[in-house]
Simulated assay, not measured.
Amino acid sequence: MRRRDLSILLAGSVALVFTACGDPSAAPPSGTAPPPAATSDAAPPLPADPSPTTSQPPAPTTTAKPAGRTVVLDPGHNGGNGTNSSAIKKQVPDGRGGTKACNTTGASTNAGYAEHSFTWDVAVRVREELTAKGVKVVMTRDSDSGVGPCVDERARIGNQAGADAVVSIHADGSNSPTARGFHIIYSAPPLNSAQGAPTAKLAAALRDTLRAKGFPLSNYIGSNGLHGRADIAGVNHSTRPAVMIECGNMRHPEDAAQISSAAGRARYADAITDGLLRYLG
């Protein structure tokens, strides 16, 4: 009997970033994705998170050198947000027809170490490492004592800079006692071409590098370290490749130990820097 090979064509796409980590009361329940923020028009449904075996973002390709490239770093929240509630509660466009709060105060460890302090420290370290490699770095805030800027303004900074990559640095605040690990958020469904393949490559480069450096993938949200969301204004407004990294759960003792220590923050900064350099080539 003549044998014939049967081939199967799999068709798929990965649409490739900011979470409610800044508001502990809004932290998503363990193991579930949070609902999209309320909008004046119904938000498009989120696609399924990429499968670890069949739908991972494509491995990043490198065609240019890091020197001369531009990276925008967005340290989440700000040190003055907590005492300026009226300013950060102001409603701004969410990028999908609705509105959301300008910003939030951020999460904290059980011992009181603030997310805004963590994100600023890590961002400054990444800036120093990238600058030493010839990369132009633009920060969305210039200190850890100010207010805001609002999430839509943070995105505009990246757009106006013509950034080759935008990375918003955060840490989550899940109350689940077992929730730990990092995940990378991207805008889904994508609203422009930069939020598609370029963002997928950026997310993959950062995810793979953080994992290779020993940071565990999230065990409570997303899939294989990635999480697509429609309600994150900072990435919805971006016209550049943009992601948000939730570096870990500030309420988990092991994650909190890394986040709270200078040595741990240096490890996060090194991993983020290496991931960006991998993406930039």
Score class of each variant (00 low, 15 high):
D144P: 13
T53I: 10
P149Q: 07
T62P: 00
A64T: 15
A256S: 10
V72F: 12
S40I: 00
P198W: 05
S176L: 06
A42G: 01
P52K: 14
Y268W: 14
S176I: 11
Q195P: 00
E115P: 00
K90P: 00
E153S: 10
C150I: 08
E246P: 06
E153A: 10
A26W: 06
E246V: 07
I169Q: 04
S55F: 03
Y268C: 01
R251H: 14
L6R: 14
S55W: 09
C102V: 11
C247P: 04
R4T: 10
G95R: 15
A212F: 05
A67C: 03
T70M: 07
T99E: 01
L277M: 08
V71Q: 01
C21K: 12
A257N: 10
A11H: 13
T239Y: 07
T83V: 07
G162C: 08
G158L: 01
V135M: 02
N81I: 00
Y279G: 04
N224M: 02
P29Q: 14
S168L: 07
A230D: 06
P45Q: 08
S145I: 02
T19Q: 07
L206A: 06
Q56M: 13
T70G: 12
R278M: 01
G31F: 08
N236C: 09
T83I: 04
Y220A: 12
V124H: 05
V14E: 13
S117T: 05
S143W: 12
L191C: 01
N78Q: 14
P34A: 14
G98E: 04
R278C: 00
D5H: 13
T178R: 12
R156M: 06
A101I: 08
K65G: 02
G222V: 13
T199L: 09
P36Q: 10
G196Q: 14
G248C: 05
A111L: 11
D255C: 03
K65C: 01
V235G: 08
P47S: 07
F118R: 00
A200H: 05
R180C: 06
P35A: 14
T273V: 09
S7P: 03
I184M: 02
F118E: 04
L226V: 12
G31M: 09
H170D: 10
P253T: 08
K213A: 11
M1Y: 11
D208E: 13
G22D: 02
A197G: 02
T209G: 03
L202K: 07
G196N: 06
D270S: 13
G79W: 13
A263W: 03
L226C: 04
S55D: 14
T104P: 03
P60F: 00
A200K: 04
G196T: 09
A37Q: 09
Q258N: 09
D208H: 12
A204Q: 15
N159K: 12
P216I: 11
A20G: 05
A132L: 04
P28K: 15
V135K: 01
D5F: 13
S86P: 03
G228D: 09
Y113T: 02
S260W: 11
